[in-house]
Design a protein around this nucleic acid. Structure first.
Lengths: 121, 121
DNA sequence: TTCCTTGCAAATCGTTTGCATAATG
DNA sequence: CATTATGCAAACGATTTGCAAGGAA
């Protein structure tokens, strides 16, 4: 893969934040440093980066892909009211049923839904 | 909610199968008994049914919503090659971190990715 | 020079929605 | 009769893609 200033910027943006931005949020952020960057380029690079497992995607109920620069094994909690995504760094163990069934696991995406402390009042 | 033949049919279809069909698959199936049913009606009712928690939605990497008539607590395994979705009826327990953080959980969606026994050869 | 990457805009595709008509209670 | 649900088709919104021009190796 050839170097590109845009891809490097996009990678830095995702790796540098702890929220879980959508493509458009990353695009907005990228435009601050690279005003001519296009949304297509952002999407193209996000695809490349997630294919290469440099970043992770999160499919949520809001119908937009969220991106996560942290590729370590962890789960997520999503507030159904404010949409905030909270990292859970102590994920539960993989169901024993999986190896019992002879399935080969390459990854997992556990999302818990509910209300965060701010919204549960 | 008023009765409709179409909604009843859609509910029966989802409850009657053990795979995790997309809206279009349900539409194709529904047309066999109700040839004039429209895709819009299928989508409208799927939304109603999932809002009422009569069925469950599964957001997957294939960018289409999958529907599940089984609303009991369970997880899923998705084969990255053939796309098959396998139910895991012994889900792992909710991370302790959640209650420690004071979060209020209403639901969970745990998806494991990998290769099924057919595709791992 | 080769060919990967970009910006731009048009296209794609799953899903939603407006509207006139049909069906339910 | 009052309203909700439908079929149809158009609209939507997130994401993808074709293409000509720019940049990396």
């Amino acid at each position: 893969m050839r170097y590109s200033r845009q891809r490097e910027l996009i990678t830095e943006i995702i790796k540098g934040r702890k929220d879980h931005p959508t493509a458009d949020m990353i695009y907005q952020s990228a435009r601050e440093l690279e005003p001519n960057i296009s949304l297509g380029t952002v999407y193209r690079n996000l695809k490349l980066l997630s294919d290469d497992k440099v970043i992770i995607t999160l499919e949520t109920e809001d119908k937009r892909l969220h991106y996560d620069g942290d590729t370590s094994r962890h789960s997520h909690f999503i507030c159904s009211k404010c949409g905030k995504i909270i990292d859970l760094f102590k994920p539960s163990e993989t169901p024993s049923e999986i190896k019992e069934a002879g399935l080969f696991v390459t990854g997992e995406k556990c999302v818990y839904y509910g209300y965060c402390t701010d919204c549960n009042n």
